[in-house]
C-alpha cells in the first residue's frame, strides 16, 4: 500500500507539470489468460516520452507487480541434531514483481528514491512484516525463492529505446503466476528524480480444466474428496476386468 500512496502522491505532483516532459505508455494485452498448458509468454509494454526536454533523454523504469500475497517464511535450525522449522515471518509482498530499466538502477537514482518507489529486487520491502527477530533475512529468502520460481525478476537493460522518445519492454510472464489484478508502472527519471509516471492495470486470469478442479476442491471439498475416492476405486476396479480379459 505504501507504494500505491507514493504513486498517487506522485501523480498529483506530476499533473501541473504535464505540459512539460511526460509519458504515454500502453500494454500489449490488458487481460492475460493462463491455461493449464500455458508455458509462459512475453507481455510488451511500450510508450513514448512526450515533449522531451533538452539535453538528452532521461531514464525509463518499468515495474510490473502482481497482487500482494501473505507469505509465511520459515527458518530451520538444528535442534538435537535435526533440522527443524523454528523461526518464522509473515510477509505481505507482491506475488509477482518485474522491473526493467534503461541502465543500472543505482545509476538511475539514489537508494532512498529507489526505496520509496520499491524499484529493484534489493529495494523491495514488504508492506507488513511480523517476524521472529530481524525480518531482513526472511525477506531476502523470500526474494530468492521467488526469483528461483521466476516470479521476481530484474532486467537492468530491459528497456529498449527504439528512438529518442520511443521505448519498449518485454515482460516475461512465466507459468504459475498467480491470478488477480496486476499493475504496470512506468517512471521517467531525470537527474535522479521522477519527472513523470503512468500506471496501467492488467488482469491475469487462470482458465482451463485444472483451474476448474482447483475451484471445485476449494468450493465443495467434501464432494471433491468423495469424487476422487470413488473415481479412483472405479479405475482400480475396471482395471481388473481389463487384465482378466487380457490374461
Amino acid at each position: 500500500m505504501r507504494c500505491a500512496f507514493a504513486f498517487a502522491a506522485l501523480l498529483l505532483a506530476a499533473c501541473p507539470a504535464a505540459a512539460e516532459e511526460s509519458l504515454v505508455a500502453g500494454v500489449s494485452q490488458d487481460v492475460v489468460q493462463i491455461s493449464s498448458t500455458y508455458t509462459g509468454t512475453d507481455l510488451t509494454v511500450f510508450g513514448a516520452i512526450e515533449q522531451p526536454s533538452e539535453g538528452g533523454v532521461g531514464d525509463i523504469v518499468v515495474v510490473v507487480r502482481g497482487p500482494d500475497a501473505m507469505t509465511t517464511v520459515r527458518r530451520k535450525d538444528r535442534i538435537a541434531g535435526v533440522w527443524i522449522n523454528n523461526a518464522r515471518a509473515r510477509l505481505l509482498m507482491p506475488s509477482y514483481y518485474f522491473v526493467a530499466s534503461t541502465r543500472r538502477l543505482d545509476s538511475v537514482a539514489g537508494r532512498d528514491v529507489l526505496g520509496r518507489y520499491g524499484l529493484g529486487l534489493s529495494n523491495l520491502r514488504p508492506d507488513s512484516a511480523v517476524s521472529d527477530g530481524d525480518p531482513a533475512p526472511f525477506e531476502n529468502a523470500l526474494i530468492r525463492a521467488q526469483a528461483r520460481a521466476r516470479l521476481y525478476a530484474q532486467n537492468t537493460t530491459g528497456v529498449e529505446m527504439l528512438s529518442n522518445t520511443l521505448f519498449r519492454v518485454k515482460v516475461p510472464i512465466p507459468a504459475g503466476v498467480p491470478r488477480g489484478p496486476y499493475n504496470v508502472q512506468v517512471y521517467l527519471f531525470r537527474d535522479g528524480t521522477v519527472v513523470s509516471a503512468q500506471s496501467t492495470p492488467l488482469y491475469v486470469d487462470q482458465t482451463g480444466f485444472e483451474r476448474g478442479l482447483y475451484d471445485f476442491s476449494r468450493d465443495r471439498p467434501f464432494t471433491y474428496g468423495l469424487v476422487t475416492v470413488l473415481l479412483g476405486i472405479a479405475m482400480g476396479w475396471m482395471s481388473t476386468f481389463f487384465f482378466r480379459r487380457g490374461a
Partner: peptide, 12 residues
C-alpha cells in the same frame, strides 16, 4: 544441512 535454511509457504 539443508540447501536453503529458509522455506516459503504461500498464505498463512
Amino acid at each position: 544441512v539443508p540447501a536453503d535454511l529458509y522455506s516459503v509457504t504461500m498464505g498463512t
